[in-house]
Design a protein around this nucleic acid. Structure first.
Lengths: 205, 205
DNA sequence: ACTTTTGTTAACCAAATGGTTAAACCGTAT
DNA sequence: ATACGGTTTAACCATTTGGTTAACAAAAGT
């Protein structure tokens, strides 16, 4: 059997603790001692399992980022209609973030620190995100008179902003709208349908 | 005369350097020595002018946050129509951020660290942001059949997301869409009209 | 049984870092 | 010229911090 009930392996404990501390205090603000305390073990163990702080940090988030982001390209470059791409993109993105709520913050931080380095780590050398096809598709549907005239860049920005921002600004929304964690989650679930509807209403003729 | 041409006062040099370093490295990642280097002066001068690191950090951003945010309440609670509120909110917000591009990142970071503490500093004790009136107005216009049915919370989230996120995700957009600083600025200028149009299209009947 | 490997800890270390201090600098009023 | 105020600097200090080490414990091989 793989791993009975509540008994996490030491490595898992470290990762869980590290995620928690890194998320609230950021990479530079997090202390190895904090993580050790949170995990209930000796600091040296962190180094035993994950060489150093940088390696630990990467291990916490990078794996998931690597799994997730290439999916986006797949959606962008698929043969679906624009409306279906919007629906899929929003829905898949929100699902991913719901099961991994700190990912956006991590990504944003890394992109701020060193975009090239980060994109290289996540996408590999040549396989960068290519929104070109989606952008072209938008332009084409505008010309064909299927949707209202809109700059493809703005539409893409809107899709991404509507999807990601609530997670980044979560503490702000929680506090200002006085909603609970549970309500927040429900609202995000609703957004899987609300956002595509909102966007499609905005652009359809 | 107040301050000839290029000659910044020492205090201004410090603030400019601090903003730059704090913005790229974050509060915890920034080193007092980095800031001193950037400003071309001795580290002790930073402490001479601004007591300690925390005080310096607050001085960099807090003043502007305090000036800006109460404006939002004014818009939310004004007697304008919903559509005009949307136009004003987006336009004023983007203008503010354009003249102070690091503000959103700063706000998000602080809200993540300690929401209560931050809101208290920015808004004062009792004067917290109150979106209630706007939310009610949305609900009312939905009932009156002026706009399509939409949850007020989602609409508010959408407004804020569309407005703020592009600035937070700027490095991501710059790099993935291969646009220049100058182009980015132009796009943001366009968004002052694009976003309200987009939102209004999405909700008007 | 005992040896080897793996996991865990307390104590330690060197470097980095925020902050202090005492002296020097410099314009200006006496 | 000189005394004086604010300004600036080099040197220094105390603490924090990431990382190491050597010893110990627990499993796993033999």
């Amino acid at each position: 059997m793989v791993n009975k009930n509540k008994s996490k392996t030491t490595e898992e404990k470290i990762l869980a603790a590290a995620r928690k501390v890194f998320t609230t205090k950021g990479m530079t603000g997090a202390r190895m001692q904090d993580i050790a305390d949170e995990a209930g073990m000796n600091k040296a163990l962190l180094h035993y399992y994950f060489k150093d702080k940088d390696k630990l940090f990467e291990n916490v988030f990078l794996a998931e980022a690597q799994k997730f982001f290439p999916k986006i390209n797949a959606i962008f470059n698929s043969e679906e209609t624009l409306f279906d791409k919007i629906r899929n993109f929003v829905s898949e993105y929100i699902d991913e973030i719901l099961s991994n709520p700190d990912l956006p913050w991590f990504v944003l931080n890394e992109m701020n620190r060193d975009p090239e380095q980060f994109l290289f780590k996540v996408w590999g050398k040549e396989n960068l995100p290519k929104p070109a096809k989606l952008l072209a598709q938008v332009e084409q549907e505008v010309k064909a008179g299927i949707i209202k005239p809109i700059s493809p860049v703005h539409l893409l920005m809107n899709m991404i902003s509507l999807t990601i921002f609530p997670f980044v600004g979560k503490p702000m929304f929680l506090y200002n709208l006085r909603i609970s964690e549970k309500q927040f989650r429900e609202i995000m679930e609703q957004r899987k349908k609300e956002i595509p509807e909102f966007i499609i209403n905005a652009i359809k003729k």
